[in-house]
Amino acid sequence: MNLFRSEEHARRWPAFQARSEEGFIGLAELAGFFATESRHHMLDADYLSTWYPRRAEERRAYLERIGKTSPFWLGTPDPGTA
């Protein structure tokens, strides 16, 4: 999960996976993805027990809101491989 100067730079990266053509995300959307409510509580005394368990659901909801609903982003099995 890296930052590149542009999409073209990422595609020239020798380790670039062809499948990851769908793996681009704009910086503003990325910042939003990592700004869900639980992230605001990482220093709280009850983060691990109270906030961390909410993270997966928040992430999924955010990804759906920005249209990243493929198995690649949601971490669900690919159709035909389940």
Partner: peptide, 26 residues
Amino acid sequence: MRDGRIAWVDPPGVVGHLNYGFGPSR
């Protein structure tokens, strides 16, 4: 960034890239 807001980016075209999908394929 400051309090979650992007304050400066250089170059302006910076993108995030996920090379392996999340979940079982990561």
